[in-house]
Each structure stands twice: as structure tokens, then as C-alpha cells.
Amino acid sequence: MVLIYSNNKKLTLEMIAKGRELADEQDGEVIVAMIDEKDENLANEYISHGADKVFLVESGVENFKAEEYTDIMANMVNDVESGPVLIGSNKYGKELASRLAAKLSTGCVIDCTDIYMEDGELTVERMVYNGNAISVERFSGRPGIITVPSKLFDPLKKDEGRSGEVIEKSYDVSSSYSNIAGIEEMPSEGVDVEAANIIVSCGRGFKNREDLHLAEELADALKGKVIGCSRPISADLKWLSEDHWIGLSGHKVKPSLYFAIGISGQIQHIAGIRDSGIIVAINKDPNALIFDSADYGIVGDLYEVLPKLTDAIKKEMD
């Protein structure tokens, strides 16, 4: 029995594919939990993509709170005597998975990079030490909780003929005594750095938000058009929305060409760009760490180098 939950549809479809593989090895079922999403069409879509059962659960609470969703999931795990629990690895999923693991006194691995059965045991891999190592970890005991980042697995093809069950369920929830006082949508520019083939990334070397146009012009010249950034540009200064943020705590990218401009090259930034093809750095400090992680670098002031580079690349690409 594999149990799957995410508040994100794409991620759920991706996890169903992996869940199917794990369940088939043990002649088990794939169960998808849908919490507070009264959507039978979506439930049937999950079934046609490989799920056996979909549980429709109403929490009775207005908005997600890990405390309450943990109660639901813990009850469900016990109810179906679940084996592996796969949870979508966004911030909601991670805090839910961790609290759930504590409640069930079980192992939990956050942000796995692979999942498989080995020697009859559930085995996962994850990145540790800022991407310097892969740790292979084996669960002993049930259920075992894993959070799965997006785009790790491909969804199964749709099979309209597949049959399954959509079941309404209700579980006891004890309400948390924290209160949600307000929810605000965060800005998003809808860029997908993870899918980009060329990324021009900006760091604190830029003095003003307006100056980021220098990076945009380079991206345009490269016909790349995707701008990335270091954590402070997004999290502290809020010059770019969080979908641009690259690194350990941001997006992991794998473009064929990555420009790090005015980025010092701290290990937490590098953790997000290790799988890049060619890395180019522009930094005015000849001792900047970024040059150790770059294929090509120019020591210089970005305000002088960028316009020249953009011009030269335009000429070359014509």
C-alpha cells in the first residue's frame, strides 16, 4: 500500500507514477489522498494515471494547517495500514511530512532524489552537505515517509480504461490553537528556471533593482530570456519573485549555460547549479569563490562588462 498526498496536481501525478512502481513490487495499491478538494473529475484523472483508490477527505478547516492535516494523514495511514507515504515536497508538504513522521514515530526523508526497493527494503537517495554528497538511506519499519520534489518522475500515460474507486472519507481532527490572521498571494512572474536552457543569474553585485535590465539584455541577446538570482535578491531585497531564486533553498537548475553575475559563489548558491553545463562568472573580486565553481570567468565590474558582453554576443549570434 502506497499513500500519496500533495496539494499540487502535477506533483501528485508524478508521485503516482513512482507509487505505482513501488506498489506493483509488493502487489499493493496506490491510494491518493485529496484533502479539501471536492473534485471527482480530478480524482478520476488520478485513477486514469495509475491510482487504485482516491480518498476524498473534508478537513472541516478553512485553510491548510500542518497540525490538522497531520491528524487526517495519521488516521489515514492507520486506516489503510499504509506502507510508504509519498508527500509532495513544497513547504506545505515538508512540514506536514515531518510532523506526521513524529506522530507515527517513523523515519522521514525530505527531498529525495530517487526511491527504489533494494534487498526488499524501501531505499531512498538524497543530497547532503550542500550537494557535495549523495546519501543512500534505508527504511526499516513501516510506514516510512518521503517528500518528493517536482519533476523527479514522469507521470504515467493516461489510460481511460483504468478503473478504481473514489471514496469519501472523514477523520477526526483536533483543531490547532494557532490562528491564520491573513493570507496574501506572493508575486510570481511565472518563470520556470528549472526548465530553462540558458540562465542569466544576478546577485548582490547589482546595486539597484533597475540595473537588472543589464542582465535581461544579456539574456535576450542569448535568446535565453530566463533570469535567475541568489537568495538575497529575492528573499531580502525582493527585487525578483521567488520563482527566480536558485540554490540549496531555492530551485535546482540544469541549463546548458549558466551566467553568475555579481554572485559570490557561496556553497549554498552552488548547490543549486551543480548540474549546469557551462558556468560563466562575472565578478569584480579576483578571489571570489565563484571562480572555483566556474568554467569561464571575467574579473571585472559588471556595469562595464555586461554591456560589452551583450554587444559582442549579439554580433556573434547574427
Binding site: T106, G107, A133, S135, V136, E137, S140
Partner: peptide, 9 residues
């Protein structure tokens, strides 16, 4: 422990 590290690459 519910999880054991079996390899570190």
C-alpha cells in the same frame, strides 16, 4: 533508528 544510511557518495 527507523532509517539507516547505507552509503555516502
Amino acid at each position: 533508528p527507523g532509517i539507516k544510511s547505507v552509503d555516502l557518495r
